[in-house]
């Protein structure tokens, strides 16, 4: 289920957290900015929001933490107050008038500074009709700014649910390229696919050729799709000196049905156990 499917309940929870983190005057300003007759000023409100809320890290109670976990969005405990307030504001106005808010939000993407872009991409799963933002999300993956990429790639349920295969593969490949925390990519294993596996094994070969290391997590996505072509990359990987990578390759082979690789690795004593 997308977060936006149950936005009513989530909205209440977010607002509850926001209230605990804001002075009365700032909270009142935000409520007003989120009211139906203020939708014309959504752009300006979004932009000037940190001037009203400040930017401290969120303080979240144990009860709220539990509620966030139950809603599957406990990742936002590490956010700052302006980021959460911006996401809430976009969500609430997007549901109030989807048609009217859409071009305003689109315009905000066009002129966003870094923190704004982070908030905008973080808001994607909270917007009405989330499927209308697929192109925008794919465009965001082309950013070269670390924190913007993190907002899209890490702890964001949107990409796995909505991106097409090409855009998803681009996201994963770029996450490896830019050394993101692969474990934080939502839905990673569920969206493993052959094309991605081939691309990643090519990428591994390029890295080997340049004498560079690779993130061994790559092999986890390759495992179900090992074939002749990928086997070639594996053989090169096993000749380098990185023990951690040898182990990752052995685990990948154990998860695959590709017989030649199983035979090959059974001849390497220190890895033969792992690959069983």
């Amino acid at each position: 289920m997308a977060i936006s499917d149950g936005f009513g309940n989530i909205n209440e929870l977010l607002l509850n957290i926001i209230k605990d983190n804001l002075e009365d005057a700032a909270f009142e300003w935000l409520i007003k900015a989120g009211s139906a007759n203020e939708i014309d000023k959504l752009g300006q409100s979004f932009v000037m929001l940190p001037r009203k809320t400040g930017k401290p890290a969120l303080r979240i109670s144990e009860v709220q933490k539990k509620q966030l976990e139950e809603s599957g969005i406990s990742y936002l405990t590490s956010w700052s107050i302006d980021r959460l307030s911006r996401v809430w504001l976009l969500g609430v106005q997007s549901f109030a008038d989807t048609e009217k808010s859409h071009p305003v939000i689109e315009n905000l993407f066009l002129s966003a500074e870094v923190n704004e872009a982070v908030a905008l991409y973080s808001a994607l799963p909270f917007l009405a009709k989330p499927e209308t933002w697929v192109k925008r999300c794919a465009e965001g993956i082309r950013s070269n700014i670390g924190s913007v990429l993190e907002a899209i790639m890490e702890n964001n349920p949107y990409p796995a649910k909505y991106l097409n295969e090409a855009a998803w593969n681009q996201l994963v490949l770029k996450a490896f390229f830019t050394e993101k925390d692969i474990n934080k990519i939502n839905g990673l294993d569920g969206r493993a696919n052959e094309q991605l596996a081939l691309t990643l094994s090519d990428y591994a070969r390029e890295r080997y050729a340049a004498g560079r290391q690779i993130n061994p997590q790559l092999w986890r996505l390759v495992a179900p799709f090992i074939n002749d072509q990928i086997f070639e990359a594996i053989k090169i990987g096993l000749t380098n000196q990185d023990k951690e990578e040898h182990n990752a390759i052995a685990l990948a082979i154990s998860a695959s049905d590709y017989e030649p690789a199983k035979v090959y690795i059974s001849q390497i004593p220190e890895l033969s156990q792992l690959s069983k």
Binding site: K55, S78, V118, G146, L149, E150, T178
Partner: peptide
């Protein structure tokens, strides 16, 4: 302007949690 916080450039260890640069590959 209310937009300059001297701590942002006098205390490099005081990392602004809203901005992460170390996550980028070249940083």
């Amino acid at each position: 302007s209310g937009q300059i916080d001297e701590a942002d450039f006098t205390a490099p260890k005081n990392i602004d949690q809203t901005e992460k640069f170390e996550g980028n590959t070249i940083l």
